[in-house]
């Protein structure tokens, strides 16, 4: 079997491949726009697709740690930052689609929506909370912030919860899709609670 943890293979093979793959959803949106294949309401289609991929990348990012713990593999950790930054990338595109294409800089309507519509309030808050996480994602910032970095980046749990809530609250009748995201998110967060408690019980310091 291929040794996945080989540094060369990761850096020059797998990482660029994952990077390109993560760009595929936006590539497809651009292609469909070019082909006039976004349907009757293209702005809505772009909004939905960038939103969907934000949630998917958030869940993928949150899946890395459980994957490492369960399998014992270390190499998935090398992708966590990239996936997290792609979540921010799609979230920013999603927000920009709303601000530019949907509202066309109608600031009054934008501010009103953020204040008055709970689903937009939580969605916008989630994006705001992602900004400091993206800004402190560099190696230098990790070093500088030390243990505070870990605490700061726990915000991603809240971001994911707000993101799913944002989806749930905007649906008219059929909550099946947001429910699937909610279920996966609960599993990912639930695993952490379970795993953390077990570690604590085993550790003589806190026991």
């Amino acid at each position: 079997m291929r040794n996945f943890s080989s540094s060369r293979w990761l850096r020059f093979g797998l990482k660029p491949a994952v990077f390109l793959l993560a760009l595929a959803p936006i590539g497809l949106v651009v292609w469909d726009a070019w082909q006039d294949a976004l349907g009757a309401n293209p702005i809505e289609a772009v909004t939905h697709r960038t939103g969907d991929w934000t949630l998917r990348f958030l869940l993928l990012t949150l899946g890395i740690t459980p994957l490492r713990r369960i399998t014992g593999w270390r190499w998935p950790m090398r992708f966590r930052r990239m996936l997290g930054l792609f979540a921010f990338f799609y979230a920013t595109l999603h927000l920009a689609t709303w601000l530019v294409l949907d509202q066309f800089f109608d600031w009054q309507a934008i501010v009103e929506d953020i204040v008055k519509r709970p689903y937009i309030t939580v969605g916008f808050t989630a994006w705001l909370l992602l900004v400091p996480l993206a800004a402190t994602s560099t190696r230098g910032m990790m070093r500088r912030l030390g243990s505070r970095w870990v605490r700061l980046h726990r915000l991603v749990y809240l971001v994911a919860v707000l993101g799913v809530l944002h989806f749930w609250w905007l649906v008219k009748a059929d909550v099946l899709e947001p429910a699937v995201y909610a279920l996966i998110l609960s599993a990912l967060l639930g695993y952490r609670m379970f795993a953390n408690r077990r570690t604590r019980l085993r550790s003589p310091v806190t026991a």
């Binding site: 009757a40 309401n41 702005i43 309507a109 009103e112 929506d113 519509r117 709970p118 689903y119 609250w169 905007l170």
Partner: peptide, 11 residues
Amino acid sequence: RWSQKKERRIG
């Protein structure tokens, strides 16, 4: 959950 002041005419 949303404003009804405006609408997007399809197209």
